[in-house]
């Protein structure tokens, strides 16, 4: 009898013997025929990680990335057949990897890459028309709340994760300066783009996403950063289609 538990365990452990009860067409032991399945599993999942985390792949180098991917796919195999979701645990795995102690920023590059992928598949939204906003009276604007596009994502890194990602994807990009970076992922149409945020912007976006009215949002950003430029971040959100129409006031 060859149960799937034994088959599964032997698939993921190249040193394990081929499970019993598997043969070629003449009744001889299956031998390397079993390796076809072993290879399909390891290679297809590794390729999925390379495709999903291209900057991490370049930063680690092919051999190191494949070695890491082999350990990852055994510890965190996909939990669903939707491969777009595979790799959700990779940032945490990289954070905890002892051999990557000198590359702690790599996990945030992985978070950025996974965030770009989630943004790519996120629901569409009708963006807010900026001209409608410009026509509003100041006090109405200040009392308005806004929605955020499902494809928009905010990422706060203790490292220059965006600069490192840009340099990995495009070697002629400037060298990363050693400082924390807040990143906005926005998807104007179908292609997600990361944007570097200024100090106070992340507080602004977080307050917006909590559903605070714009006046309060701007105050919170000013508390985080006294010279915060509300117009700039509002412009970025509008121009990338990240703001959705004002929400009607909801009664508590």
């Amino acid at each position: 009898m060859t149960g799937q538990t034994g088959f599964h365990a032997a698939l993921l452990d190249p040193s394990a013997p081929v499970p019993p009860g598997l043969t070629d067409g003449a009744g001889r032991a299956a031998g390397r025929r079993f390796a076809v399945y072993r290879n399909n599993v390891a290679v297809s999942l590794t390729e999925a990680l390379i495709e999903g985390f291209p900057a991490c792949h370049r930063l680690l180098g092919d051999d190191t990335f494949r070695g890491m991917a082999g350990a990852y796919l055994r510890e965190h195999p996909p939990a669903s057949p939707v491969m777009a979701q595979f790799g959700a645990d990779l940032p945490g795995f990289l954070d905890a990897a002892p051999q990557l102690a000198r590359m702690r920023w790599l996990a945030d590059v992985a978070r950025l890459e996974y965030g770009l992928r989630l943004s790519y598949h996120a629901a569409d939204a009708v963006p807010l028309d900026g001209t409608a906003l410009a026509a509003m009276a100041a006090e109405d604007l200040s009392a308005s709340t806004f929605g955020l596009a499902p494809a928009m994502r905010l990422l706060r890194s203790d490292w220059p994760a965006l600069s490192i990602w840009r340099k990995a994807m495009n070697p002629s990009a400037p060298q990363a300066a050693n400082r924390p970076e807040d990143i906005l992922i926005a998807r104007p149409d179908y292609d997600p783009e990361p944007h570097l945020l200024m100090p106070g912007d992340a507080a602004f976006v977080a307050a917006l996403s909590d559903g605070a009215p714009l006046g309060q949002v701007a105050e919170q950003a000013l508390t985080a950063q006294p010279d915060h430029d509300t117009t700039r971040i509002l412009g970025l959100l509008l121009q990338t289609g990240s703001l959705t129409p004002p929400q009607p006031e909801t009664m508590p």
Binding site: T2, Q4, T5, F7, H8, L11, G21, Y37, N40, V41, S44, L45, A48, P77, P78, A79, S80, P81, M83
Partner: peptide, 17 residues
């Protein structure tokens, strides 16, 4: 074929008797 066992999806079409 099968491809999921014990909550893990293996991304291959695996055989059964």
């Amino acid at each position: 074929a099968w491809s999921t066992h014990d909550g893990a999806f293996l991304n291959d079409l695996l055989p059964l008797p």
